[in-house]
């Protein structure tokens, strides 16, 4: 136990204020995100992530949002296990035909009002896989999409920025 406490104390808090490799700064995006979430979702945004056919690259970066450097929970964003608890679906693609029904059902299970973000090149436009006998391509070919976050895969900062933009667009459209 002492070793664990010692390690925790020595490492301290690594959660970032000003990362060198990305602009704009993480805490700037985060502060805006937190404000918008406070305004629109009562301080907490619940996201259900749905892998509808991805290569798993996007999932790894979405995972990284929860690591101590990005710590997305501090901005009021958390990932939930059920679409019934979700305000937002973060969907990676391409949507495989074998996942088409499951994605529709997940969408239907998410209560209104809901936001859908298509993540990654494949989610946005089918990416390397396109449309075929096995793939429906972009997420918007299957369910209504409010915003896309491009990138193969998008970095954790791209993801945070994309979530913020989607929330901003929703408030300006008065939806």
């Amino acid at each position: 136990m002492l070793r664990i406490l010692n390690k925790i104390q020595r490492i301290g808090i690594v959660t970032e204020r000003l990362p060198k490799i990305e602009e704009p700064a993480l805490d700037e995006i985060g502060a805006q995100l937190k404000d918008r979430i406070g305004e629109l979702f009562g301080g907490s945004l619940a996201i259900r992530e749905v892998d509808a056919g991805s290569c798993n690259g996007c999932e790894l970066e979405i995972h990284a949002l929860n690591n101590p450097y990005y710590g997305i929970e501090r901005f009021g964003v958390h990932f939930v296990a059920s679409p019934r608890h979700a305000d937002m679906l973060l969907v990676t693609g391409p949507v495989s035909r074998h996942m088409e029904a499951a994605l529709r059902r997940t969408y239907d299970a998410t209560p209104e009002p809901k936001l859908v973000i298509a993540v990654g090149e494949c989610g946005a436009n089918g990416g390397e896989f396109g449309v075929s006998y096995a793939s429906c391509g972009a997420v918007s070919n299957v369910i209504p999409v409010d915003a896309v976050i491009r990138g193969c895969p998008p970095t954790p900062l791209d993801l945070m920025r994309g979530i913020l933009e989607a929330i901003g667009r929703r408030s300006s459209s008065g939806k």
């Binding site: 391409p94 495989s96 074998h98 996942m99 499951a102 896989f129 075929s132 006998y133 096995a134 793939s135």
Partner: peptide, 11 residues
């Protein structure tokens, strides 16, 4: 399994 079959061999 098979849910994320994307037709890789074919495309």
């Amino acid at each position: 399994l098979g849910y994320v079959h994307k037709g890789i061999e074919k495309i």
